[in-house]
Structure formats: C-alpha cells, structure tokens
Design a protein around this nucleic acid. Structure first.
Lengths: 113, 113
DNA sequence: ACAACGTACAACCATTTGGTTGTATATTAA
DNA sequence: TTAATATACAACCAAATGGTTGTACGTTGT
C-alpha cells in the first residue's frame, strides 16, 4: 500500500495545476529567487504569492534557503522528473494496448481459414 | 495571448491531480472501458465515477464512443504526451541555468588575477 | 534606536471540488 | 409491453482552494 506515493503525486499535480505556480516554477528553475522578487512579478498580493511558494515547497517542487532576511527559492528538477515519469508510466500502459492489438492483427492474418 | 493554452494546461494537471482519475486513465489507456465497468472498480457511487470520467473527457485526456447503451471511454495518449512536454519545457529551463553556472565556472578559472 | 524590508501566518471570504441522492431518458432483454 | 441496464444531470453538502487584509517578528540600513 503505497498510499503515501499517491498522496505525493496528488500534491505534485495539484501544485502544477495553477498557472501562477507553473510560472513561479519557470523562474525558480532558471535560478534562485527571493519570495519578494517573485511576488513583484504578479498582480496579486505578497501573501498570495507566498502561499503559492509554500504549496510548491510542500509538494517538494522547490526548496528554500535563508540568506539574511531573504528566503531564496530554488526549483527542484528531480521532482519535475518524478512527475514526468508518472506520465511515462501511463504511456507505457498505452504501448501495451497497442502491442496487444498488433498481436491480434498478426494472429488474425495467420488464422485465415 | 495563449490564455487558452494555460486554461487547457490547468485542466490537464487538475484532471490528473486526483488518484481515482489517474487510475481511470490507466484503465482506459490499456483499452476501452464502459463507464459502468469503470464504476464497478471503485467504492464510490456510479455518479461520482461518471463525473470523474466527464472531467477527464473535458480535459481531453479521454474520448467516448457510444455502443448501444454503453459509452466506451478510451485514453488519449497524445494528451498525456502534451502534459509531459510541458514538464520537458521546465526541465529545459533548468538546463539553461546549469549551462550558465558552467559558463561562470569556466570564466572564473580564466579570470584568475 | 528606529524605520523599512522580507517573511510568515491567522482570519476571513467566495468559488470550486469531490462526493452524495434522486430523477429522467435511451437502449436492451424478457 | 414491461423490466432492467447504462448513462446523464440536477440539487445539495462539506471540505479544499485561491484570494484578501491585518498582524507579528527577525534582519538590515540610517
């Protein structure tokens, strides 16, 4: 029962299901950004952006590092890859379906009575 | 203005941010499944599963085909790939960051005064 | 010392989400 | 024709989400 895994996957997709958070990810993957530097980029309040960063951090998509009074956020590419691998798993399932269809076609053409 | 693109991406990640819907995707990527065949697999009500299927359909992750009184759902691997490519874009941004860091290291070692 | 800055978090609010039950409609089986 | 099956959808509900303002606290600059 890897229900924890599912919890984590829920959190990852949920975190990425918001355009502001995806945009934050683009910035923090490009390099470290302070929370206020990020907040300056969006129309919403500082608190709203701070909460988005917290959601991304909780999901493991970014980490924070203190530097004086600033908190520097940095994107975690391994987490991004773990989401990608979940999608690869889905694609593999689909490949299995295609393989089975191909088999059927092959056996049909040999069973031609 | 690719706001529609972002809407679609929101819907895709949102749709995949639920473990029941991810499980449904595994099944419909493996082959066509009727809504009631899917519903039989989960503890929740038929209506709940039907709504999950509707969410996946709206996001473009599956399509339905009528067959008598049944509605056969089939996973769309292209939609899955489009999510994956969004993640690849993020990974590319990160690669750029690494490349820039490498450049800095290289110039540092030549600028040694 | 004190003002400004950067961050965190609580309280609140409207909307969305994930579930329920109940009803309606079309298709198939008896 | 009538009963059972498969689907869709409305109405409702509790909880989660994405935003707000206000407050508190540590850090930095004057």
């Amino acid at each position: 029962m890897h229900g924890d895994d599912e919890d984590r996957t829920d959190a990852l997709f949920q975190a990425l299901a918001d355009r502001t958070r995806r945009d934050i990810m683009r910035r923090v993957l490009a390099g470290e950004r302070s929370v206020s530097a990020l907040a300056a980029r969006y129309e919403m309040s500082f608190a709203a952006v701070q909460k988005h960063v917290a959601v991304l951090e909780k999901a493991g998509l970014l980490t924070k590092r203190r530097n004086g009074r600033e908190q520097l956020a940095s994107g975690d590419v391994a987490a991004v890859r773990s989401v990608a691998s979940m999608l690869t798993e889905l694609e593999q399932i689909w490949r299995g379906r295609i393989a089975r269809i191909d088999e059927l076609i092959a056996s049909d053409s040999t069973e031609e009575s």
